[in-house]
Amino acid sequence: MFRQSLRSLARVNKFAGVRTYAEAANSDVLKLSLALPHTAIYNNKAITQVNVPGASGEMGILANHVPIVEQLKPGVVEVIEEAGSTKYFISGGFVNVLPNSKVNISTVEAFKLEDFSAEKVKTLLAEAQKNAASADEAVSAEANIQIEVLESLQAAGVH
């Protein structure tokens, strides 16, 4: 069975640029699963590119990306499909890219960027900055996390 599939792969390579369905199902197409604990936004869907806010910096993932595992910080996940791109703001989580061009993003919460209200972000940010100066360690730690999330929301251009 394997020999047969190897042969067909070799045949495909002869006609470089000719895409077959079998090939597309393998590794030249990026597959995305973007899942929250309570719902799955994308489930194994073919896309062109996805940009994720990695802990070590923003990165774009295309098909045949090196397999990685990385923690995500709060930020924007941009999913680029043929029809256009959609931006989601996620609360942090993990991304793993598998050798067969499958991307799994798991995060606790994600919403579309246009669903956020800029004024609400501003008032919450002001409140958090006030709390950050608090003497209570737990309160100020919580406020610092809030500030991190809200500032990245502002940087993402919520309007």
Binding site: S33, A35, L36, P37, H38, T39, A40, N43, P67, V69, F94, N96, L98, P99, K102, N104, I105, S106
Partner: peptide, 16 residues
């Protein structure tokens, strides 16, 4: 159904 998709990502990584 939702949580199975969610944990599948982890399991795929542990599998590979």
């Amino acid at each position: 159904a939702a949580s199975r998709v969610y944990t599948e990502g982890d399991y795929e990584f542990f599998g590979v």
